[in-house]
Design a protein around this nucleic acid. Sequence first.
DNA 1: TCAATACTGTAATTTTTATTACAGGCATCA
DNA 2: TGATGCCTGTAATAAAAATTACAGTATTGA
Lengths: 281, 281
Amino acid sequence: MAIREQVQASLGVLPGAEKKVAHAFLANYPSIGLSTIAELAALAGTSAPTVLRFVSRLGFASYPEFQRTLRADVQSQLMSPLERARSAGPASDNPALEASFAAIAANLQATVKAVPESEFEAACELLADHRSACYCLGGRFTDAIAAYMAAHLRIIRPNVSHFGGQTSTWRDQLLDVRPGDVAVLFDIRRYQSDLVRLGELLVERKARILLITDPWLSPIARSARVVLPCVVDANRTWDSSVALLALVEALIDRVSRAQGDAARARMQTLEDIHWNNLAGR
Amino acid sequence: MAIREQVQASLGVLPGAEKKVAHAFLANYPSIGLSTIAELAALAGTSAPTVLRFVSRLGFASYPEFQRTLRADVQSQLMSPLERARSAGPASDNPALEASFAAIAANLQATVKAVPESEFEAACELLADHRSACYCLGGRFTDAIAAYMAAHLRIIRPNVSHFGGQTSTWRDQLLDVRPGDVAVLFDIRRYQSDLVRLGELLVERKARILLITDPWLSPIARSARVVLPCVVDANRTWDSSVALLALVEALIDRVSRAQGDAARARMQTLEDIHWNNLAGR
DNA sequence: TCAATACTGTAATTTTTATTACAGGCATCA
DNA sequence: TGATGCCTGTAATAAAAATTACAGTATTGA
């Protein structure tokens, strides 16, 4: 089994700090693993001994041995016949749009691989916990995704809000955050310092953080309970948020299915209110 | 230029022992270069200082620097988007997520077929018209997509706003709409009556309407200048907005590329303001 | 609430690795 | 044939890396 799969398989049983190492490694495979312990530790936001414990848990006797294996992996992957027939999609009369969507499809595929089931399930559990409040917030562009998520989440569970508006009003909203509350943060590269800061404040208030980020891992990853990495690079001027949205929808769908009939009643009530302008019954 | 080509090019001018190093490197690219000097020297049948002189002659200040560059090379070759999708194969450790994303991918593919090039181009032209203002607005869930679009569009052109907030405030914002202005409406099934009504009001004010909707075509389609249908059915409790977002991103990308340098300057200025908190210069 | 356990980071230590200094060798050219 | 300049390897040194020991901090379970 290639190292990468080995790491993915181990994700479920790794302690927190080592899991960060695993994420950093997977996100920057293979180059970071060929670098030094110190660099990998820095990227993961942890310390050298943790990296060492990580490779030891994978079954390697030393870091150099880990690197030898990794080099062999890379060698075999890079030197095997690379060219592969691209699945020729059905013809379309819109080549520009087709190219654009093909890049997006590749993102989605890569994202599925980047998100391990254990993390996905952990995220769903956080979201399904009705006792704690749930706050969604994002950065400059991702704020819209956060709003979208809040709008849906609100339907299947109580106590959801969108930490919206200006940066300056965040502090006020922080007042209501209680220990154990769940904060869903969206942060992709060109990480906003104010968002990072807010993440820290949320941690101080003992909120549990679900971070949805890119494979470069926002600095917030250090404080997050669960991290879901999405591939956002689409060879454009700006990154693509499509994978984020797709992931959000998958989460919502998973949570709402898990809740079954209990939630269905709630949904029905809300729908009535929304479409009939009733004040409830 | 990639290191490998650089080495090949230098083969002619290298002294004997260094040429052996070059050959050993090329024959075992890239793994041996990621290993230690001693190993490379041994493989080449020469000594460590010769390896060092070799990398120095290539223009690197140190062996670690040589390795950094090599790692970057490997990374880009191995992890190009295409390769990334391929390498782990179709196997994923997250069947639920995979199924969900597969449905989305199907949506995207169907959407490409549903949007004719002529309509897509017409939409881009509307968005690229700097003389008229541009308003983005959506329904209950799609409002977030509208906000996302506005946030990006604002960067590449002036006079963009997001018709946001409560339904009741729409009327006020309507006052500013002038003949020829462009309104981007998002509306998918369970079409909101108030949104439809607003569409009619916009038409009365002689706005040009770009409608992004599902294949059932919102009633607004009748009054719209351009209609872009997106496939939203994903066999879930709610429809998926991913295709909408992907289409928005494709539009933004197309328009921003078309504008070229003129827009780039505007972007740069905005970025400066955003990241440095300058008031402009 | 307390004890036990597991996890994590700091700092010291050991080991490995890169780098430099130097001297012998080999060809080239006078 | 002898001197010059460029290659090359050995061995010493310096730098960096990996590893270990240990102590503090969360987490878990009773």
